[in-house]
Design a protein around this nucleic acid. Structure first.
Length: 442
RNA sequence: CGGGGUAUAGCGCAGCCUGGUAGCGCAUCUGGUUUGGGACCAGAGGGUCGCAAGUUCGAAUCUUGCUGCCCCGACCA
């Protein structure tokens, strides 16, 4: 993409409403625009990151056997009356009436609707297990939206719903999502730690929040340092084998959020093993049994001919929140530092002197070769000053910057800068291609 | 929902106390000089001063009401 033909509205100054670093950087980097409290437009750069995150989530959901659907944002109130939640939900639910005065709502979540879909088609245990998910915009009318995209009223969420014939089968479904989440967050360059969460009326041990550590996190969390070094399950993990050993390895060490924290248990860890930090919740999985299938009549026939309400679980990932969380975890004074897997572009190619023959030729050549090799390049071909170009590149945080100018090209080299480490090296254009293509297209 | 702020050009702000018809920096446009870490000079465009009532000869400025947004707390993915 040529910057001269792109839409990247950078702000030099800090908007005063943005207090938290991710919010500030997203506004400054031209990723989002606030339209109302907790409601944002996604500008091109922000949208690209959102899509990168979605793609990773989709790939890992597929690997774990979940199947994608898409349910509407607007739901009929009657479904929620069946589950009893229409009255129970409170003011966070945005209620709407259509022209016929029928009660609708902007969905804050989708248990009722997915249960309705399930009961319409599935009758037999032979069709299980089943896990359906979608990635859709949700709305919760928060009293006080804040932290930019991290705590908006409208937010993009992946929510999956599992259906199984009994609790034991549901536990396998739960484990698949558990392992899938470990892989999903690791691929985004995040260290997400599963922490036991409150299970509400169901009870049991099947509810975890996935928390990433960031100094600006919203809540206090505590865990065993050992969790930070555990190995993420490999891509070729068989999700339909017994995943219990993996889940146990990840749930054995101490890990708890503020609400679930047990200081006495935490104190039994060696001083050096105690990690107490701030965290951001990016995922939440839980088993809720027949809470919805029962009142809504979602039943399947078992092998012995009985009909039983299906056992369900739900599994959320805050997709739009992750954009903010990623920035909270990856930034410095100059701006964002994207992990390559979610970066809006891989490389920022800076032409220091548009109009200069050799510089243009070298830049165009690099742009063509990198792009042809599958590297996503944002090519700054604009006629502005070097300092402004560098500042913009640092701000938007692409993993690599390639700087081509007359001075270096006299000696046949361009500069490659690693945004994360700050390391710079001078390489010939061909060497740049040889270095970056394998690093970014693996 | 309690408490506290704030609202003036795209962004950041001054002006308000002491009423006289709006200004600064950045950004934008034109011309020139510049050009390897957010250039300089000269000129230009851009604002129903959040909205509505009131006081006054006259309101960005004083009064009242409303609304938006932000922060702290309670709540939440």
């Amino acid at each position: 993409m040529r910057l001269s033909r792109y839409f990247l509205p950078i702000l030099k100054e800090n908007p005063k409403e943005a207090e938290i670093v991710s919010h500030r950087l997203m506004l400054r980097a031209g990723m989002i625009r606030q339209q109302s409290a907790g409601i944002y437009s996604w500008l091109p750069l922000g949208l690209r990151v959102l899509r990168k995150i979605e793609r990773i989530v989709e790939e890992e959901q597929a690997r774990a056997g979940a199947i994608q659907v898409l349910m509407p944002t607007i739901q009929p109130a009657d479904l929620w009356r069946e589950s009893g939640r229409y009255d129970a939900y409170g003011k966070e639910m945005l209620r709407i009436a259509d022209r016929h005065e029928r009660d609708l709502l902007f969905g804050p979540t989708n248990e009722e609707m997915i249960t309705d879909i399930f009961r319409a088609y599935v009758r037999s245990y032979k069709d299980l297990p089943l896990n359906l998910y979608h990635i859709q915009w949700k709305f919760r009318d928060e009293v006080r939206p804040r932290f930019g995209i991290m705590r908006g009223r409208e937010f993009l969420m992946k929510d999956a719903y599992s259906f199984d014939v009994d609790k034991e089968a549901a536990r396998h479904a739960y484990n698949r999502m558990f392992v899938s989440y470990l892989r999903t967050f690791t691929r985004m360059g995040l260290k997400a730690i599963p922490m036991k969460a409150e299970t509400g009326p169901i009870g049991g041990d099947m509810s975890h929040e996935f928390i990433i550590l960031a100094s600006t996190g919203e809540s206090e969390v505590y865990c065993d340092k050992a969790l930070l070094d555990l190995e993420t399950p490999a891509a070729d993990t068989d999700f339909f084998s017994d995943l219990t050993p993996i889940v146990e390895a990840w749930t054995a060490p101490y890990a708890a959020t503020d609400e679930m924290h047990d200081p006495a248990a935490f104190e039994t860890l060696a001083e050096s093993a105690r990690v107490s930090a701030r965290g951001i919740e990016v995922g939440h999985i839980f088993y809720f049994g027949t809470k919805y299938s029962d009142p809504m009549g979602a039943k399947v026939a078992t092998g012995d001919g009985n009909e039983v309400p299906v056992h369900m679980g739900s599994y959320g990932i805050g997709v739009s929140r992750l954009v903010g969380a990623l920035i909270e975890a990856n930034h410095d004074e100059a701006g964002i530092i994207w992990p390559a897997s979610v970066a809006p572009f891989h490389v920022g190619l800076v032409n220091l002197k548009p109009g200069d023959g050799p510089t243009d030729a070298a830049s165009e050549d690099l742009y063509g070769k990198l792009t042809a090799a599958g590297v996503e390049v944002l090519y700054d071909d604009t006629d502005t000053r070097a300092g402004a170009k560098f500042a913009t590149m640092d701000l938007i945080g692409l993993p690599y910057q390639v700087v081509a100018g007359p001075r270096g090209l006299k000696d046949g080299v361009v500069e490659v800068k690693n945004r994360a480490s700050g390391e710079k090296e001078l390489l010939s254009p061909d060497a740049v291609v040889n270095k970056l293509v394998p690093a970014l297209t693996a």
